[in-house]
Design a binder for these strands. Structure first.
Lengths: 126, 126
DNA sequence: TGAATACATGAATTCTTGTTCATCTATTCC
DNA sequence: GGAATAGATGAACAAGAATTCATGTATTCA
C-alpha cells in the first residue's frame, strides 16, 4: 500500500454506528464540511469573539456569517452570549476543540498520501 | 454553561488553518458528512469487504454505493483492490480509522449537551 | 465464445445548502 | 424618543451533491 500504519495518537472508546445514528452524526459533522464554518470554528478555537469581528476575520459578510453561526449554535458547537450590543461567540466546550484538532491533524496527514492512493487505485482498476 | 470541560483524550499538534487550507480540508471532511458514506466507512472500519457485500450491508443500491466509493477513493480515504471479479475495499490507513473514531466519539459526547446548548442560546438571544 | 457475475460510469433528476439582499429586532448613547 | 451600531432572519437564487436508471467494462466459468 506504500503507506505504513500511523502512530496511534490517542485511544478512544469505539462508538458503534448504526443506520439510525448515522444521520444525526452526519448532520453534526457537516459543520466541519464547509470552508466558511471551518474558518469560523478555527478562529473561535483561539478564543471568543464578537459576531462582527468574527465575520471580518474570516472574510465573510455579516449576514452569511450569522446564518452559519445559527447553524453551529443549533448543532451545539458554539454558544453566543450577548454582551451589550454585541454577541460574543465561543466554542461550546472541549469536545468541539478536540474534534477540530483531530480533524485538522488527520486530514493533513491524509493529504500527504493522496498521490500514493491514486496510484494504488489505478492498479486496482487495472 | 452547565457543561464542564471534557477530559483531553489525546494531544495532537495543532494545525494552523488559513483560508487556502480550509477549502481542501472541508472537501475531505465532507466524506464524513453524509449518512451513506459514514456507514460505508464505519463498516470498512471493521475490515475490508467487497463492493457488493458492502452495498448490501449498508443498505444501498450497488450503483449509489459505487459512486460514493469513487468519491472516497479520490479523497484517499479508501482503497479498492481487485480480487478476481470483486473489488475489495478497505480504509486507506490508520488516519482514516482514527479520524472516524474521534469524530464518532466527540459527536456522541456533543449530542449529550445539545439541549443544554439550546437553553444557553435562548438566553443569549433574550 | 457466450453467458453470468461484479463494478464502474455518464446523464438526468431531485434535494440540499450556502450566499446575497432586504428587512427587522435589540441595545446603547445623545 | 431618535439615531446609530450589532445581529438575526426570511425569501430568493444559485450551485453542488446524492440517488436512480441505463449502460458499459472486466472477469470467471462452462
Amino acid at each position: 500500500m506504500g503507506h505504513g500504519a500511523a502512530p496511534a495518537v490517542g485511544s478512544v472508546p469505539r462508538t458503534r454506528l448504526d443506520a439510525a445514528n448515522a444521520a444525526t452524526v452526519a448532520t453534526t459533522l457537516q459543520a466541519l464540511a464547509t470552508p466558511s464554518r471551518l474558518l469560523i470554528l478555527a478562529r473561535l478555537r483561539e478564543g471568543p469573539l464578537a459576531a462582527t469581528e468574527l465575520a471580518a476575520e474570516v472574510g465573510m459578510e455579516q449576514s452569511a456569517c450569522s446564518h452559519q453561526l445559527r447553524l453551529l449554535r443549533n448543532l451545539g458547537l458554539v454558544t453566543g452570549t450577548r454582551n451589550g450590543r454585541s454577541v460574543v461567540y465561543a466554542l461550546y466546550d472541549n469536545h468541539v476543540a478536540e474534534l477540530l484538532d483531530q480533524a485538522l491533524y488527520h486530514v493533513e496527514h491524509l493529504r500527504l498520501g493522496i498521490s500514493d492512493a491514486a496510484g494504488a487505485e489505478a492498479d486496482a482498476r487495472g
